[in-house]
């Protein structure tokens, strides 16, 4: 195994005692600007380890922007500027000495639209382990690929066609392939930006089932427009509105007994 920096998981910070479980990711006073536009305003959040956190909110409220802060994908947008403090296992991910490439190996991402590489199914999954030098031999790699595909519950469907192109799969299979691709790097966190928005209900159900299983090993943050989905898969939910995190709490509480009227209006569908 390549030596990814491993961090001792220590006791939770005392700053914001919202999460009952040990927080994996903490954000403090996070602000994001696209040029002049203030897209995220003073967000504070604790994301607990080995659980699913859902971000909900109307379109354009900054869910994706905040999600992309967690693996620094916003670095690829020249006009984007992030201030504040985001830590994973106590480690400041915007630290100058931190290698963003290694950060992204620890924080995987699944995108809204399935985006398999135009390579074989096998190569899609092997891509991450290869670039990070995680495996020594072909047999190791085979095993990593198989395990990842199994965890993504795609193995049975593709085990006889590993050398066929990943782009030839159905949309739902492609999305599970993208999840397998992320898992293969053995990340600690998986970010999912509306992973089911391009899928039909059956494929969606499969992915939700998968997310439920994955939370045993990974910390998952998911952006979704579907209230039902957030209610089904997540333990905690955060509601964003106009760049502000209005309310955050246990999913049950947010959906049954929201504190803020904006949250209530949004989840009951009374929102513009």
């Amino acid at each position: 195994m390549n030596s990814l920096p491993s961090f001792e998981t220590t006791a939770a910070t005392t700053a914001v005692p919202t999460a009952a479980v040990h927080p994996k990711i903490t954000g403090r006073n996070v602000n994001v600007f696209y040029g002049e536009k203030h897209a995220i305003k003073d967000v504070n959040v604790d994301i607990p380890e080995r659980s699913v956190m859902a971000f909900i909110g109307p379109s354009g409220c900054g869910k994706s922007t905040f999600l992309r802060c967690i693996n620094r994908m916003n670095d690829t947008i020249p006009i984007c500027r992030v201030t504040g403090d985001i830590r994973i296992d106590e480690q400041d991910i915007y630290d100058r000495n931190l290698d963003v490439v290694q950060l992204r190996a620890r924080v995987g991402m699944v995108f809204q639209k399935p985006n398999p590489f135009p390579k074989s199914i096998y190569e899609n999954v092997a891509y991450g382990p290869r670039i990070h030098g995680l495996v020594k031999s072909k047999t190791d790699l085979d095993e990593v690929v198989e395990t990842a595909l199994k965890k993504a519950s795609l193995w049975n469907e593709v085990k006889d066609r590993l050398l066929e192109s990943g782009t030839g799969l159905s949309g739902g299979q492609q999305q599970r392939l993208c999840i397998a691709r992320a898992i293969a790097v053995s990340p600690e966190v998986i970010l999912m930006d509306e992973p089911c928005s391009a899928l039909d209900p059956i494929a969606t159900a499969k992915i939700e089932e998968l997310i439920d299983e994955l939370k045993q090993n990974f910390t998952i943050v998911i952006v979704t427009h579907s209230m039902q989905q957030a209610a089904r898969v997540s333990q905690r939910t955060a509601f964003f509105h106009l760049g502000i995190m209005v309310e955050e709490g246990a999913t049950d509480q947010i959906f049954t007994n929201p504190v803020d009227t904006r949250t209530r209006d949004y989840i009951t569908g009374r929102f513009g």
């Binding site: 992204r104 995987g108 995108f111 590489f117």
Partner: peptide, 24 residues
């Protein structure tokens, strides 16, 4: 989206270009 997918897996820019963009 392919470039993002690769970067999201921790590939450097040059890896992304050599292994994803140019083959595509």
């Amino acid at each position: 989206s392919l470039r993002d997918g690769s970067a999201g897996l921790g590939a450097t820019k040059s890896e992304t270009i050599r292994k994803v963009v140019l083959p595509a």
